[in-house]
């Protein structure tokens, strides 16, 4: 968006671009050789809350589309909601290259289905030898990757580890140069991700394992699940407008 638009008070939603996402598959060797990081077997794409009528119309299609994507790629594709009403498409596949290819495929299908600029970020999970989690996030708005490593305390990030990660993969993938835009993504429905309260999100992980590959049959399951996550903030329970 240009400065002129800004000064005239016109907001043009930032474009979502997926062209750099596929580059991640080339970074597996660096991650493993330099930092001992292995893919956790999970990736996820986050879509903004789907409140508007047009998105509600598309919602049923999304489930059908994901079921189809799962069948085509052989990966396990599920839908999750986070406590803030954002929709997550979680892809499970043990091999990083396959995971990236599947995530890319899903992002293309989301775009084709019209979700376009609502597609915000993709997260890829990794673990080191000690089992500590690390994430590489791809911002569709920036068309670049950045690291996100939860720290030991509540709501902390391990910045040293994040900088190591960024420099390890800097040659293979585009890394977001502006660290002010290394947006933390708390409460991701991924194994090892810090939850809404800052602690590992067990309810999410369990729900995910218990989920069937296709959730197209249920239209509202996430609404009740996510309001359960909101018990710490009962006044801010969302209406399940997302899913």
């Amino acid at each position: 968006m240009s400065l002129l638009d800004a000064l005239l008070g016109r907001t043009r939603p930032a474009r979502s671009r997926d062209e750099q996402l596929i580059a991640l598959s080339s970074a597996a060797v660096s991650l493993s050789a330099e930092l001992g990081l292995q893919a956790s077997g999970q990736a996820a794409i986050v879509i903004r809350p789907l409140d508007s009528q047009a998105y509600r119309d598309a919602d049923a299609d999304l489930s059908r589309l994901l079921e189809l994507a799962g069948r085509e790629t052989g990966a396990t594709v599920t839908r999750q909601a986070d406590p803030y009403g954002y929709a997550w498409v979680v892809i499970a596949d043990p091999d990083l290259a396959d995971l990236v290819a599947n995530a890319y495929q899903v992002s293309i299908e989301l775009r084709d289905a019209g979700f376009g600029d609502a597609v915000l970020a993709a997260a890829f999970g990794f673990r080191d030898a000690a089992g500590r989690p690390a994430f590489l996030l791809y911002s569709f708005k920036r068309a670049a990757f950045y690291p996100f490593v939860p720290g030991p305390g509540d709501g902390e990030r391990d910045n040293a580890r994040e900088l190591q990660l960024a420099s390890a993969v800097g040659r293979e993938i585009p890394v977001e140069p502006d660290q002010a835009r290394w947006y933390p993504m708390w409460a991701m429905p991924l194994d090892g991700a810090p939850g809404a309260s800052g602690h590992p999100a067990q309810p999410h992980a369990e729900r995910q394992r218990g989920d069937t590959p296709s959730t197209s049959s249920g239209h509202q399951p996430q609404a009740s699940d996510s309001s359960a996550d909101n018990q710490a903030h009962p006044e801010q329970r969302h209406n399940g407008g997302c899913c």
Partner: peptide
């Protein structure tokens, strides 16, 4: 405030920052 003090608010704001393509 830090995230530890207001996790819900801070999480919502960082997600919106992604959508607006603005620094947090």
């Amino acid at each position: 405030v830090s995230r530890a003090e207001a996790p819900d608010l801070v999480d919502r704001i960082s997600r919106l920052a992604v959508q607006f393509d603005l620094p947090i």
